[in-house]
Amino acid sequence: MPAARPTRALTLPAAFVATALTVAACAGGTPTPVPTTLPTSAPTTTAPTPSPTQTEDPNPAGLKPLPADEIDASFVTIENFFTAYEYGLRTGDPSALNSLSAPGCETCETLADNIINVRDLGDRAKGGAFTIKISELKQSLVPGRVAWWLHVSQDATSITHSNGEKTTLKGFDGPVLVEVSPEDAFRITAFDTSIND
């Protein structure tokens, strides 16, 4: 399993439409004589190119698609969860994180609340990127769920408050036990940082 998320560049496609104008004339009645000299071509006009239409990005958080294999998909769900949290802190939008959180996951709810609190206070967050250093598949105590023991590192998070003051939240480096439910659209059901190595 890869230990770090790859960096992605987001490119939005643009559509350009060129319109060619053709003018044809029809005349009824008597035929007109054919000119003895060829006419010069009339100047052509081109319609201005319209600006590309901005469409809403269906995946603004940059979440990876899930592989077909259940075990691989559970791991990508965890990577996506971390990505969604980082995105939420930057933008104040917890929806990507919520879409990956099963009802009853207390840590998931706490992280979503952190995003909302930063947003509602008018603060801005920067940093907080996660790196999965070690991953090990474990047996879950709940049938139908996949458990992962991870050693995770999170960078410090810098918060700029609405009054201009700055606070730095210490990063995290340690073990995490994460449980994923493939039966629940691959959502995080448990997230525990209180375990020992």
Score class of each variant (00 low, 15 high):
Pro67Gly: 07
Ser51Ala: 09
Pro58Lys: 13
Leu38Tyr: 06
Leu66Ile: 05
Ser41Asn: 14
Lys64Trp: 09
Thr55Glu: 15
Leu63Phe: 06
Gly62Arg: 05
Pro52Lys: 00
Thr32Tyr: 05
Thr36Asn: 01
Glu56Gly: 07
Gly29Ile: 04
Thr46Leu: 14
Thr46Met: 12
Asp72Thr: 07
Pro65Asn: 04
Leu63Asp: 01
Pro31Asn: 05
Pro43Asp: 04
Gly29Lys: 09
Ala42Lys: 10
Ser41Pro: 12
Val34Arg: 06
Pro48Trp: 03
Pro48Ile: 08
Ser41Phe: 11
Pro50Phe: 00
Gln54Ser: 07
Pro60Tyr: 10
Thr32Asp: 04
Pro35Val: 00
Thr32Asn: 05
Asp69Trp: 04
Thr46Tyr: 09
Thr49Met: 07
Gln54Phe: 04
Pro67Leu: 09
Leu38Gly: 13
Asp69His: 07
Pro52Gly: 02
Glu70Gly: 01
Thr55Gln: 15
Leu66Pro: 09
Thr45Pro: 06
Thr44Glu: 15
Ala42Thr: 13
Ile71Gly: 00
Thr46Glu: 14
Pro43Trp: 01
Ser41Trp: 09
Gln54Leu: 07
Thr53Leu: 06
Pro52Trp: 00
Thr40Val: 14
Thr53Glu: 04
Ala27Cys: 10
Pro60Asn: 05
Asp57Ser: 11
Ser41Thr: 15
Pro33Asp: 02
Thr46Asn: 09
Pro48Gly: 10
Pro67Glu: 08
Leu38Gln: 11
Ile71Met: 02
Gly28Asp: 12
Thr49Trp: 00
Ala68Cys: 06
Asn59His: 02
Pro39Trp: 11
Gly29Thr: 06
Pro67Tyr: 10
Thr49Lys: 02
Thr36Val: 02
Thr45Asp: 14
Ala68Gln: 15
Leu66Tyr: 10
Pro67Met: 08
Asn59Pro: 04
Pro67Ile: 09
Pro50Glu: 05
Ala68Phe: 11
Pro67Arg: 12
Thr49Cys: 02
Leu66Arg: 09
Pro52Leu: 00
Val34Ala: 08
Thr44Val: 11
Pro52Asn: 00
Ile71Pro: 00
Asn59Ile: 03
Pro58Ser: 13
Ser51Thr: 03
Thr30Val: 14
Pro50Ile: 01
Lys64His: 05
Asp57Lys: 10
Thr40Phe: 14
Asp72Ala: 15
Pro35Gln: 03
Thr49Asn: 03
Leu66Cys: 07
Ala68Asn: 14
Pro58Arg: 12
Leu63Lys: 03
Thr55Met: 13
Ile71Asp: 02
Pro50Gly: 04
Pro52Asp: 00
Ala47Tyr: 06
Ala61Arg: 01
Ser41Leu: 15
Val34Glu: 02
Ala42Met: 11
Thr36Ile: 01
Gln54Thr: 08
Asn59Ser: 02
Ser41Ala: 14
Asp72Ile: 03
Asp72Glu: 15
Leu63Ser: 08
Pro33Phe: 00
Thr37Trp: 05
Ala68Asp: 15
Thr37Arg: 14
Thr36Leu: 01
Ser51Trp: 01
Leu66Phe: 11
Pro65Lys: 04
Thr49Ala: 06
Ile71Phe: 02
Ala42Val: 11
Pro35Ala: 05
Lys64Gln: 11
Ala61Ser: 04
Ile71Val: 10
Leu38Lys: 07
